[in-house]
Computed example of a mutant assay.
Amino acid sequence: MSIPALGLGTFRLKDQVVIDSVSTALELGYRAIDTAQIYGNEAAVGQALSASGVARGELFLTTKIWTENLSRDKLIPSLEDSLGKLHTDHVDLLLIHWPSPNGAVPVGEYMSALAEAQERGLARQIGVSNFTVALMQEALDAVGSGVIATNQVELHPYLQNRKVVEFAQRRGIHITSYMTLGYGKVLGDAVIGEIAQRHGATPAQVVLAWAMQLGYAVIPSSTKRANLASNLAARELRLSEADMAAIAALERNERITSPAGLAPTWD
């Protein structure tokens, strides 16, 4: 099962706000929805999905296990709780949200529990998020090759995460980009603006198209119907080799998300 190129992110969206965002996105044609235990919105997302009338088989649903639930005795029970909130008996993709802080729970322990969740049919695919090269290698050592579907990482024109991308791609691990728009920071970039003007597109569409053209999945969020529709249309935009090279040159290792006590030592 492949990971959809473009889905809806729900980070920081809660209650009626996330219900409206998911509902509108589904109306517009989105079918991939990304949530997480720590977002505190799984129940609201589940409510929106149930009310949408979209068949479960048409949806690609992702959630993520929080660090407090990484131990072998907690991971699957916490997932079962998430599934209840989401009104489903399985997710299409289950991720470890962050590696265990200070290695409190060994990588092998939670990856084995994740693989067990997959074996039990609670998750169609499994993967990781915010994993460095070293952590990906530990995960591969635990579950073997061909098992880890994706590594979801911060990736945008100002942080292109090339070491992680190159290692993942060599090992058959797909890359999912979060914060692809750099929390809006990259949208005012002159290079992005020039490319957008040339294509009759928005800066957001250019950045999303850039990431998808590199083979990454993207999960931008929005609460506005016009932006949701515009982001979806980015799938149709094709950038030239010169456009791609110009965006590649914007790399400046500008990381936005690195929470103290949670973030690993980045590559």
Rank of each mutant, 00 (worst) to 15 (best):
R198D: 09
P99E: 07
A209W: 06
T265V: 15
V133Q: 10
S145Y: 14
T62M: 06
G193R: 05
P4L: 00
A204D: 10
P99Q: 13
V54C: 08
R198E: 11
P259I: 09
I148R: 00
V22Y: 03
V207Q: 08
I175N: 07
T176A: 13
K163D: 15
W66G: 08
R120C: 14
N130K: 01
K224Y: 07
A248Y: 15
A229V: 12
A51N: 04
D92F: 04
G53Y: 12
Q169L: 14
L114E: 08
N130M: 04
L122Q: 07
W66E: 03
D243W: 03
L75K: 02
N253E: 15
T63C: 08
A201R: 09
R162A: 13
G193C: 02
G57W: 09
T176N: 11
L159I: 02
N227H: 15
T10K: 01
K85Q: 12
T88R: 00
D73A: 12
A204Q: 07
S258A: 15
H90Q: 11
P77I: 04
L250W: 11
A43Q: 10
K14Y: 09
I195H: 05
G146R: 07
L70C: 00
T150M: 02
Q47E: 14
A242L: 13
A149T: 06
R235D: 09
G57K: 09
P77F: 09
E68S: 14
L49G: 02
A117Q: 00
H90E: 05
V54A: 07
R31H: 01
A209N: 04
Y216M: 14
T88Y: 05
H90S: 07
V107L: 04
L155N: 14
G182N: 10
E68R: 11
G29R: 01
A113G: 12
V133H: 10
R170G: 11
V207N: 12
A234H: 12
G121H: 02
I195M: 06
F60P: 00
A263D: 12
R198S: 13
A190S: 11
V186G: 04
L181T: 05
G121Q: 08
A44Q: 01
A204I: 04
G261T: 13
A226S: 14
G103V: 08
R198G: 08
K85M: 11
E241D: 15
S82M: 00
I76M: 06
E119N: 14
Q213A: 00
T88N: 03
A123E: 04
Q37M: 01
K224W: 00
L83E: 05
S221T: 15
A201I: 10
P106E: 14
D73I: 07
R31T: 01
E119W: 13
R56Q: 07
R31D: 01
R162W: 11
P157G: 04
G53A: 10
L114R: 06
G121D: 10
A142G: 02
P101T: 02
L28N: 01
D34T: 03
R225W: 06
G215E: 00
A32M: 12
A211T: 10
P203N: 06
V91N: 02
G40H: 03
I173F: 03
W266H: 14
E116C: 10
L114M: 12
L208D: 05
I65C: 09
K64Q: 05
T257Y: 15
M1I: 10
K64M: 01
L262A: 10
N130H: 04
A263E: 13
E58Y: 04
L232Q: 06
L8N: 00
P4E: 05
H90D: 09
V143R: 04
N41T: 03
L93W: 09
